[in-house]
Design a protein around this nucleic acid. Structure first.
Lengths: 145, 145
DNA sequence: CCACTTTTCCCCACTACACCCCAAAATAAT
DNA sequence: ATTATTTTGGGGTGTAGTGGGGAAAAGTGG
């Protein structure tokens, strides 16, 4: 499963190369294809095709006649975008997602098990520094189940 | 299970050799592969591949749509790194982990049952000396279950 | 329907670093 | 003392990451 962090550059065509260390964990069923969408915080979520499938199944269960569920579905899908890696293991990230994550010319790539997250390094630093709780506190809280 | 302590050197490529005494306890299922991550204190945790698996299974149960659980996942994985031993039974420790544990040119390797810990010897000495409680006090507290 | 512009896709090339192999030094065992 | 094993060091090579150019496709306007 995806783990670790990497600093990569993004060129003026919006291309980002997927780190080789992360590529090793992509199953062949994904067919070198990814679905990207806006993440829970100011980042871009990137799912291998097969992993996205399980999310899509959850979304299918939503009742679109209920306004809140309908709204959520729109928010999830409006910026969703599918793309394949090119010969150099890169994907193109569309403009609206780049703006959402406030990305400039450098990206922080974080492996998060089933998905890959793309951050502006500065934004990520603010996100991490922003919490008042320490790693130890959160760890004991979340993992003490 | 891992036990004992060892002083080894770390070269300018970030390589540390795993003590032969500890290698004996690594199960074949680990495939000579380790996952290293930031420890609870100023040290690096190193899990054989198979031991890490149980941690990963716990992490997979988190709901990444809940901000706090998402944050914890990021903190856990951002510095996680997988590597195999080379022909000389060494692993490469990435720069960010070395900085986290304030490691210079010598490391203290401690066997801790399921995992191996890597410390800067000086930092470890401060950590041990730093506690006001004696070994006897902590022992009676923790082991009286 | 055609001509033109713009964007997307694919291929080639350069650079740098990570990995692998070889080998010496040091420690432990016979 | 000799041999074996463990630990440490360094050098060459393949591959990962990056950038750019040209062909194809799509979009726009006359």
């Amino acid at each position: 499963m995806f783990k670790g962090q990497f600093i990569h550059s993004i060129d003026n065509k919006g291309r980002v190369s997927i780190p080789a260390k992360l590529r090793k964990y992509i199953s062949p069923e994904a067919n070198n294809s990814f679905v990207m969408t806006q993440g829970i915080d100011a980042c871009i979520d990137i799912y291998p095709r097969d992993q996205w499938q399980t999310i899509e199944e959850k979304l299918l269960k939503l009742n679109t006649f209920i306004p809140k569920e309908s709204r959520f579905l729109r928010l999830m899908l409006q910026n969703a975008h599918e793309d394949e890696m090119d010969g150099q293991s890169r994907i193109v990230i569309p403009q609206n997602l780049l703006e959402y994550a406030q990305i400039e010319n450098e990206v922080l790539i974080i492996g998060a098990l089933k998905k890959i997250e793309i951050w502006n390094p500065k934004v990520y630093k603010n996100y991490i520094d922003g919490s008042s709780e320490t790693f130890e506190q959160i760890a004991s809280e979340v993992m003490s189940l």
